[in-house]
Design a protein around this nucleic acid. Structure first.
Lengths: 214, 214
DNA sequence: TAAAGTCGAGTGGTCAGACCACTTTGTAAT
DNA sequence: ATTACAAAGTGGTCTGACCACTCGACTTTA
C-alpha cells in the first residue's frame, strides 16, 4: 500500500522531471542533454521509460535528437506538432472556427492597444508598410505580426503564432486590391490612434475574407 | 544514397501509421484501439516503438490509456493542446503581466461578443447574477466564466481557464463593495447590449484591482 | 436458481539486455 | 604533421520477461 509506489503514469512523472532537469541545469537552446542511459540511471528508471518521455517531447518539438550525437534542446518553433495535431483536431469544423475566432480576438486587441499607446502612433514602421502596400506585394500576416510584436506581450505573440499555424490560413495568399485598400486605411487609422475606425475596418476585412473564401 | 534506407525517425513513421489506422478503421471517439502487441505485429515493429508513438499521442491528449483495459481514442474536443503548449511556453515567460494582459484580452472580447449577440441580451442568467450580487457573495470568477462559456468558443475557454491558473489571481477573493457595484453596472449594460459602457466599466474595475493589489 | 467468489486471459507499465547505425574522438601508422 | 583506423559513446530498435490491473467466464456456495 505504498501510495508513492502506485505512481500512475510514471512516464508523465518522467516528463516532468526532465523539464526540471532542463531548467535547473540551465541547458541553453541548442544545448546538449545527458544521454538516455545517464538519465535513466539518474532518475532511477529504465531506459525505455526515459525514451518514451523523450519521444513525447520530441514530437512536441521541444527537443531534437541526432543519432550518434545526442539529444538537444531545440528551438520550439517546429512544425511537427501542428501536422500531427491538425489531423486529429481540425477535422471538427467547430474547432477550426474556434481557432480563427480566438486568433481574431488577439489581433483586434493588439490593434486596440497599439491605437491607445501614444508612442506607437508616429511609428515609422507604419509608413514603411504603407509604402510597401502601395508599391509591392505585402502579406497581411507581416503587418499583423508586426502589430502584435509591437504590443510587446510575448505570451500573446506565441499563442497567436501557434493559432496561425493551425488555421488553414488565407494569411499567406497575396492580397487582393480590396484588401490592400482596407489595410491601408487600417494603418492610417492606427497611425492616428483612431481605435474604433481601425477595428471597424478590420471587421470589414473579416467580412471580405469570409465572402471570398467560399 | 538510399533515401528509403535513411530511416527518418521510425517512430515518427509509426505515429503517422497509427493515424492512418485510426482513420481507416474509423475508430469512434472513445473507441478502443488494437492492443500494443497487436499493433506491433500489424505494423511489423517492436512493441517499444509502438509505445513511444502511443506515449507521444497520449501526452498530446489524443489518446487515453487505461491499464488493464486498453488504449482509447479520446475526445479531441478536450485535447490538451493548450495545457501542453503552455507548460513550456509559460516556462520562459515569467511575466505575470503578460499572462494577465492576455487573460484580460479574452475577457474583454467575451464581453463584447456577448453584447453584440442579441440572443444573450435578455438572458435570464444576468438577472440571476444581479440578484446574487445584491444579496449574497458572488465571486467575479463565476461571472466571467459564465460569460466566456456563453460565447461558446471552447478554445478560448480553455486558454482562459489555464491563464487563470497561472495568474496569481485575485479572482477567488471575495468582492469588495466597490467591485460589486461595478459588476452590477457591467451586467446591466451587458443586458442592454451596451458594449462600450460595459468595456469601459470593466476597465474601471481593472484600475480598481490594480490599486488595491499593492 | 441465483448470488458470491475465484481464476485466468488480456492489457498496459516497466525493466534489462542485446544488437545496429552513426558520430566523435583518440591513437597508431605513415 | 597527416592520415587511417579502431574504440567509445549515442540514439534506434527489438526481444523477452515480469508486474499490476481489468474483465469475463467459471466454479462454488447459499
Amino acid at each position: 500500500m505504498n501510495p508513492e509506489k502506485n505512481s500512475p503514469k510514471m512516464f508523465l512523472e518522467t516528463v516532468k522531471k526532465l523539464r526540471e532537469i532542463i531548467q535547473e541545469t540551465k541547458v541553453p537552446i541548442g544545448g546538449k542533454l545527458p544521454s538516455e542511459r545517464v538519465l535513466a540511471e539518474q532518475l532511477q528508471v529504465g531506459r525505455s521509460t526515459i525514451r518514451e518521455a523523450l519521444r513525447s517531447l520530441e514530437l512536441l518539438g521541444l527537443i531534437e535528437t541526432r543519432r550518434g550525437e545526442g539529444t538537444f534542446l531545440s528551438d520550439y518553433r517546429k512544425h511537427q506538432l501542428v501536422e500531427v495535431l491538425s489531423t486529429f483536431i481540425l477535422q471538427d469544423i467547430k474547432t477550426y472556427e474556434d481557432v480563427n475566432e480566438t486568433r481574431q480576438t488577439l489581433e483586434k486587441d493588439a490593434i486596440r492597444v497599439i491605437c491607445q499607446k501614444d508612442k506607437f502612433k508616429q511609428h515609422r514602421i507604419w509608413d514603411g508598410f504603407l509604402l510597401k502596400l502601395r508599391e509591392e506585394q505585402v502579406i497581411r500576416e507581416e503587418i499583423i505580426r508586426e502589430i502584435i510584436v509591437l504590443v510587446g506581450n510575448r505570451l500573446t505573440l506565441k499563442i497567436w503564432f501557434l493559432l496561425k499555424q493551425f488555421a488553414g490560413d488565407p494569411y499567406v495568399k497575396e492580397m487582393s486590391m480590396d484588401e490592400t485598400t482596407i489595410w491601408i486605411e487600417i494603418l492610417e487609422n492606427v497611425k492616428n490612434g483612431d481605435e474604433y475606425k481601425a477595428i471597424s475596418l478590420y471587421n470589414q476585412w473579416l467580412l471580405l475574407m469570409n465572402r471570398s473564401e467560399v
